[in-house]
Design a protein around this nucleic acid. Sequence first.
RNA 1: GGCGACGUGGCCGAGUGGCUUAGGCAAUGGUCUGCAAAACCAUGUACACCGGUUCGACUCCGGUCGUCGCCUCCA
Length: 505
Amino acid sequence: MSLKLYNTMSREKEDFIPRDTGKVAMYVCGPTVYNYIHIGNGRTYLSFDIIYRYLKYRGYDVKYIRNLTDVDDKIINKANEEGVTAEEIAERYSVAFNEDTERMGLAKPTIAPKATEHIKDMVEIIGGLIDKGLAYAVDGDVYFEVTKFPDYGKLAHRFLEDMRAGERVVIDPRKHHPMDFALWKSAKPGEPSWDSPWGKGRPGWHIECTAMSLKYLGQGFDIHGGGRDLIFPHHENELAQTEGYTGKQFVRYWMHGGMVNIGEEKMAKSLGNIILVRDLLKERNPNVLRLLALGTHYRSPIDFSSEKLREAESAYDRFLNARRRIAQALESPTITRFPERVEEAGQLQRAIQETKSKFIKSMDDDFNSAAALASLFELVRDTNMFIESNEQEMTMIAKDTLLTADNMLVELAGAVGLNLVLPEEATGLEASLSADIYDLAAEVLELNLDNKAKSELLDELLARRNEARKQKDWVTADMIRDSLAKMGIEIEDTPLGSRWKLARD
RNA sequence: GGCGACGUGGCCGAGUGGCUUAGGCAAUGGUCUGCAAAACCAUGUACACCGGUUCGACUCCGGUCGUCGCCUCCA
């Protein structure tokens, strides 16, 4: 069974055959660090995080490079606005980017190189392009000459004569062709600059990716990714300059992710509808965001809305609740013989295997995460039904099978970075319990509170409530339930007994 | 003007030449229950429109309408 992925270059799904068997070299264009990242950026990084993790899950040895663009006009503009140096801006938002991506639960790339640390490599490549007659210097600027690269336009599938160059921007008369793009820009006073054969200046945008991808991944690496909007001009230009320079194929597979719209509109600064990742994650669980991304194919646009988020939250809860049910069922009394249940366990066992193969089949088909997710939900339904039909007691076989199902859910969700750890099982439980629990315990329990952990008190409170329920002391039972609810602890009374859960953060 | 994507049941969102009950959310019904909440289970016959190809099309082809994206630095 082979992995297929859609290649922007051929516009077809292709069998994925990496350059080196068993290894994947992938490069994703990272952010220009001049602001906090918004959810559109976030979605792209999330998409490639999913791809990265899944490739590793499939056994590939993946080298994943995601750069930071820390020298750029936008950074300089921002610095001028704030009256600080460009370096300060770049540093501030690089740090912020790392914080945001960590909060999003993104795996760290193998290497996260910075443009400013590779100026020398870029200068060398630019020099090489001039030597080959593919670039020319004018007044300290260097331009790539697109008409000298016959394949120019092959990625974006557009031809020079079709493009309306200059329609939106005044054409620089020094350029040989309006589409020629800057490899090197001469520095104005006060701008960050480096020495070069053409005078002090800084690199153009595209050249950094050429330099860093060649340096860390070499020629003809496997996957180059980014948002759709990077196809032209960014990746087209990268491609032209790199293949012009090396004379060899630059990238085997080009992958581009879909955009995020706000409602039906494009998210854009001019529309004032930018949503920052860090703002969103102040009140939302990162797994919910990931689930939202997984629910739509990576190449399709997402119309973002708070309704969508709420739906994703409910869906995420369905996974967590399934795991809670399984955990509870595993604690039910074990019975030794129940022959007619063996067949049911066998069915569930088969369902588990089917889930895995369906999941992999879906993901192997150009990372169809929405279909993969569906198989996970099917397993959730199967385990729920299994637990239901076993009523209140289970054989060891049944429990083993349930445990296998639980492990499979966690494994497959984890393969695409979805974390199904229950909030109440996470290590921060003690911290997330409210201190109000002391007051409640003091009121309800007649015991010495000294040196008791909050989680211990919770256990005792739950025990106390069960006792009260047994004695039909509904006042006490309800009081405990309501008080705990205010602290974010929900109690569910089920046929298998009471169960509690912590609200998602 | 050029290139491209897309139009699926209340919403979102996969998918396929004739059996997918895709899946999620919501809704309705049911189970459970001291109450409550939650949870779980069960239902929906959809594929923009018009032609064509075919034994058969939501799926292939053509056209119409509509929505959207990119076309110099925006992921």
